[in-house]
Simulated scan of single mutants.
Amino acid sequence: MPPLPVRGAPVRATLVIHEPPTGTGNSPGRERDRIRLSFNPERISVRKQARWDRSSGPSNAAAAPAQFVAAQPRVMTLDVFLDAPGSRGGVQREVEKLLACCSPTERSAVEKPASAPWVRLEWGRSLSTAFLALVTEVSATYTRFDADGTPVRAECTLSLEEAGGTTPRQNPTSGADGPVGTHRVAAGDSLPSIAWYAYGDPGRWRAIARANGIDDPERLVPGSVLVLPQVEDGAGPVPAPGPAGGTR
């Protein structure tokens, strides 16, 4: 059986690095860097657990009923391959960026509390891997060197843990569709995937389309910046606009 056709060119996976939240906030700070992977991952492991309590008395012979305690953070492990033949610094700069994700940023060390950066894997339409995370471990192995000893290829393994908590996405005193943020469109982005990241609900893509005057949700221009409007939490997906809106 012939392989299924792939639409368009492959989308390059990117690790987006953010400043950690300031103070006691739970929203990541500004984007501080991006690491565009030389090769897309071939395998990504995602794991999530729940805590249950089965406390019972010593004389209870039957299994005690389970009581839900808490959801554990999502954990992801992926292999990252970096390649930079002919580059003056090789892959060392990118590897150092990865290693720095396990250390506090200079800004957070000054403003307190000190914290390592927050990261997010950005890879086209992938949703289950596009969560804000903390880097818990980085392992790098250099596998190729230039004549002067400069490492030009590296195989890295990253362990990420979901940052968790509820990220505030709107002014709680207003349910109006005012701007709450922006998103720069990357190749492979779709309105549902952007809505999932911004609001945790892909069904709210219509609010983004309406706020940006998008008539065709299938045609997003990479590099363009979209306004992310405020939507009221708990209101469910934003209703589709009427015929004048043009979205579907």
Score class of each variant (00 low, 15 high):
residue 240 A to T: 13
residue 182 T to I: 06
residue 126 S to V: 11
residue 166 T to D: 09
residue 99 L to S: 08
residue 105 T to M: 07
residue 157 T to N: 08
residue 242 G to E: 10
residue 4 L to F: 10
residue 47 R to D: 10
residue 170 Q to S: 13
residue 156 C to P: 00
residue 107 R to Y: 10
residue 3 P to A: 15
residue 34 R to P: 03
residue 138 V to I: 08
residue 135 V to P: 05
residue 247 T to I: 14
residue 127 L to F: 04
residue 91 V to T: 15
residue 65 P to C: 08
residue 207 A to R: 01
residue 101 C to S: 09
residue 18 H to G: 10
residue 53 D to I: 08
residue 189 D to A: 04
residue 82 L to Q: 08
residue 103 S to T: 15
residue 81 F to G: 04
residue 100 A to L: 11
residue 80 V to L: 06
residue 194 I to G: 06
residue 242 G to W: 03
residue 234 G to S: 05
residue 61 A to Q: 15
residue 145 F to L: 10
residue 193 S to R: 07
residue 161 E to Q: 15
residue 122 E to R: 15
residue 26 N to T: 15
residue 108 S to I: 13
residue 206 R to P: 04
residue 139 S to C: 01
residue 15 L to H: 01
residue 239 P to I: 10
residue 45 S to N: 12
residue 3 P to R: 15
residue 177 D to G: 15
residue 22 T to I: 07
residue 11 V to D: 05
residue 86 G to S: 12
residue 164 G to C: 03
residue 204 R to V: 09
residue 141 T to E: 12
residue 223 G to W: 07
residue 210 R to P: 02
residue 138 V to H: 06
residue 227 V to H: 01
residue 181 G to Y: 04
residue 238 V to L: 02
residue 97 K to C: 13
residue 211 A to I: 02
residue 2 P to A: 14
residue 108 S to H: 08
residue 29 G to N: 06
residue 95 V to Y: 05
residue 79 D to C: 00
residue 151 P to G: 07
residue 149 G to R: 02
residue 198 A to V: 00
residue 202 P to M: 06
residue 224 S to C: 00
residue 8 G to M: 05
residue 51 R to P: 02
